[in-house]
Design a protein around this nucleic acid. Structure first.
Lengths: 209, 209
DNA sequence: TATTACTGACTGACCGGAAAGTCAATATAA
DNA sequence: TTATATTGACTTTCCGGTCAGTCAGTAATA
């Protein structure tokens, strides 16, 4: 038997997401330990008691927040790359562009990285989950792209293992820079991205015969 | 009139360093907010009251700890690079080797990065200091190396700006990986370093005529 | 050398405020 | 009137910071 839809019911359905969003903002701002649940509550426009109607503890709230904010990134990457056409070099450019916009530019992607670095020790399960569900498939995706490039004769055949991680490392570096320096990082981002693509292709492309 | 040297005097001289070391271990383990001064005291083999004989507040203790643990890194790098001989490529290898051993392998270097990412917002002055005293001179050093390589005709002349940051980015990436995953990171480090040097040189070296 | 007086590094009990988590009371939609 | 989403005061625990007291180690005296 379904209850009638109404205002209270709608609130109840929306509360968890509202609280999770508030939690993201609060935890990102001050870190797990220093964030008070009353801060989270205030941001969500409720009081502390309400949070406990939907989340049993502060820890669980944090974990659910990270999960809800990292889900979806991967499928997005998949879709983004599936639509990419052209040479292997073109597809690599597309991928790096995606990483820069979605994982560096976008605050959510960055802050997830901060949570991993800053709070990972307290939430080892969350770290493992994130690696399994996001990092590994992402690396596999890049690996596949590189393998295709090699198979097509466009990329060098003698690439050392781990080359893929080297290729994407600069995106993480810029993320870290922005985590540390906020939105006014001491880096010329446009030139940085250009230098990155330049160097990645120099390392990957097969020498013209 | 100088007092006689004695046991008590010696302790007093050594206490600050002992407390700073204990603080490093404690803060690195649990983060700034979650670390209790009694943890620090216990690690140093004293009680909380003693800490306050040498440091006015928890914040100041943290700041002094970071300063004491990041000082020296730069002069070390300077010395390391000054002793490097050979081609520009050789000198670059030497530099990357230094970064990997001193800033990635060594726990101290890594944890400083964690402090910047995790606690930087609370200690903006510390961030600025670290950038000014360590990151900037370090970048200048690498820049000088690259410029020499270009001048000597060993490196390409048309390198985009920010290339230097791209070159050292993979060392930071590995640091982050180890901060997140501890001492058993899901990376083949030897292959990683090889791939890094390989790609850096591919991007930098002038094409043989 | 033996005794005594003194110093100061160190202690640990204590305070006040803050924050996680609880629950009886309230308010409001139906 | 009933059901329930929400509140906010309350309890408990914890921790940064304080300070009066302790006692090992040193110097002065006999």
């Amino acid at each position: 038997m379904f209850k009638c839809e109404g205002f209270r019911r709608r609130r109840k359905a929306e509360r968890p997401a509202e609280i999770l969003d508030a939690a993201f903002a609060a935890f990102a701002d001050r870190g797990y330990a220093a964030t008070r649940l009353e801060d989270v509550a205030a941001r969500a426009g409720v009081t502390k008691g309400t949070i406990y109607l939907y989340f049993p503890t502060k820890e669980k709230l944090f974990e659910d927040m990270v999960r809800s904010h990292s889900a979806g990134l991967l499928s997005e990457a998949d879709a983004f790359l599936a639509g990419a056409e052209g040479t292997s070099a073109d597809r690599l450019r597309t991928l790096l562009h995606f990483l820069y916009t979605r994982c560096v530019e976008d605050r959510c992607g960055r802050e997830i990285l901060r949570f991993m670095v800053a709070e990972g020790k307290l939430f080892p399960q969350l770290v493992a989950e994130n690696y399994r569900d996001f990092v590994m498939p992402m690396l596999a995706m890049v690996n596949a792209l590189v393998d295709q490039g090699v198979a097509a004769g466009q990329f060098r055949a003698d690439l050392p293992r781990e080359t893929v991680r080297i290729v994407i490392a600069p995106t993480f570096f810029l993320s870290v820079i922005r985590l540390i320096f906020g939105d006014a990082p001491p880096v010329d981002e446009e030139a940085y991205v250009e230098a990155h693509i330049n160097m990645a292709l120099a390392g990957l492309l097969a020498k013209p015969a």
